[in-house]
Write a protein that binds this DNA or RNA. Structure first.
Length: 263
DNA sequence: ATGGTCGGGGTCCGA
């Protein structure tokens, strides 16, 4: 069972990159972020033709998340609980049925929060508090659960090639990092760090100033695993070469393989 | 070198 996450930075602009990658990597489940389209505009047929079921929570112009699955999708639920006035499409959760039991996945597009001096940063921190509250509820189910997405958090200085460039950024603030640690401390395993230490493991490179060519990258796309998912973890990969292609997203996919009967 | 690049939608905002 291969579960992946990718911030595609517009599903319409990068559909070719997405379908090529789906064919090559063959994930069972994919969490997508930054669709930048409404539900009706999601390129459903192109992705269904590759064998995927689809649950979308879209929005015009901004945000937008989806879950793709080769296995049946049950009870897809959009929206992160805790604020009925929050209109951003940043969260969708679903249960996936497999021959070896169910796995719950959430596709997460956590607010960027820049600039730090504005309400955008307050919104980010409040959103992280809501995520922790909801995740705490989900853990009581004692299911295999994967929180997958663009968390817009650089967890430590080891997660940036040039950490000093990010000291004033919302992605690296102490308040941001503390909330990410608190979320993990509820009982989640950071899948990538469970398998590899050290620097040089990045999922995002800015379009500006030749960031990719300089390897000025950061690790902000994460797979957080419940104990029941972590027990089944086999390996984790980052598809860095996707960033070197023509007209790429600024993020690359991250995926993890689990010991489920399906693979 | 105090900039730079994308995408969406509309002549700027968000990242």
């Amino acid at each position: 069972m291969r579960i992946a996450s990718w911030n595609v930075n517009s599903i319409k602009a990068h559909l070719g990159a997405v379908t090529s990658w789906l064919k090559e990597r063959e994930p069972d489940v994919v969490c997508l972020q930054e669709l930048k389209c409404v539900d009706e505009a999601f390129p459903r047929e192109e992705i269904e033709s590759l064998g995927y079921n689809i649950a979308v929570h879209g929005q015009k112009t901004y945000n937008g998340v989806a879950i793709l699955s080769k296995h049946p999708i049950d009870e897809a639920k959009p929206r992160l609980p805790g604020d009925d006035k929050d209109e951003h499409a940043r969260y969708i959760e679903a249960t996936i049925s497999t021959k070896d039991g169910a796995v719950r996945v959430a596709s997460i597009y956590l607010p960027n929060g820049n600039p730090v001096s504005t309400d955008k940063f307050k919104y980010k921190l409040a959103w992280m508090d809501r995520l922790a509250a909801h995740a705490s509820e989900l853990l009581t189910l004692e299911e295999p659960l994967v929180l997958a997405g663009d968390f817009n958090v650089i967890p430590t200085t080891a997660d940036a090639e040039f950490p000093e460039k990010w000291t004033d950024d919302a992605l690296a603030q102490p308040e941001t990092r503390a909330r990410f640690r608190a979320l993990a401390a509820l009982g989640f395993t950071d899948a990538l760090r469970a398998t590899r230490d050290g620097k040089g493991l990045y999922t995002f490179w800015d379009y500006q100033a030749g960031a990719f060519q300089k390897n000025n990258g950061i690790r902000i796309d994460h797979l957080l695993l419940s104990p029941q998912a972590a027990d089944r973890l086999q390996s984790v990969g980052i598809d860095k070469k996707v960033r070197a292609a023509e007209k790429p997203s600024d993020h690359v996919p991250i995926y993890a393989d689990f010991r489920f009967a399906t693979r």
